[in-house]
Amino acid sequence: MDAVKGSSKAGALPLLLPAILFLVLLFLYPFAYGLYLSLTTAKGEPSLGNYLRFFGEARDFRTIWVTLQIAVPITLVNVGLAVPFAYYMRRGMRGERLITFFLIIPITLGTVLVSEGMLSFMGPKGWLNQLLLALHVVAEPYRFTHNYLGVVISLGLQGFPYAFLMLLGYVSGINPDLEKASQMLGANRWQTFWKILFPLMIPGIAISFCLNFVMAFSVFPSAVLLGQPSGPTRVISIAAYQWAFEKFNFNAASAISMVMAAIELLVISAVLVWRSRMYKGASMVGKG
């Protein structure tokens, strides 16, 4: 840091100090502490036992697949739907504010309220089943909750608006002249989308995929409330939580959280590699 001292840049460090302290004390230190806990026994002796147990015990190990089976499909659906919808709304439309208002509600309310509400609304006697019965879509109440589907629906209700609003921010920042130029050169809508807009949306798609995946992979309250937390939707967060706060084994719990972080970082790096291969231009214009 000596390089910046004495110049006009003096004073950078004091201003950064609160943020550095924050980062070290509240994030890096706990993270390192978690890593340390995961590599030691309850008595503080170094050991790989926590990891070996996690990978050795089918009940815990399979939470990885259970979680991936929930997280990957719904993330693909959320982002896959958000791309055409954001594209469709790229130049704004009537009622845009109202539409975005409804989309932001589930994000604002949070998982807990959405899950709690879904239990009644989508339950056997809820309005959704009453409607489906009245329309003769189903012969008897369909089970939307307390299973895999319930968890996936709740992740969709919150993940889709997130991906959509994020991509809308990206797509409306793309210079509209590019689209006009492409059309003038004889490209049809489909070609313009695939060759011009889609490649420019890739950074936004990559980021929203990552964030949606992180959200879905770390699903916790809705997997408990809407799923079957003892079996089919016993996701990795539940396993970590149970080790920490039901069995009071923070060492084992930390090992699970480290595995969780590792899988997420792996997926995120894979997405970022994909992005750097696909995205080569920088034709965005700022909104300001």
Partner: peptide
């Protein structure tokens, strides 16, 4: 901290 899920750093943080 925005990319790592809350459960991951939350457990050691809670322990601390």
């Amino acid at each position: 901290p925005m990319i790592v899920p809350p459960m991951t750093y939350g457990i050691p943080l809670a322990m601390l």
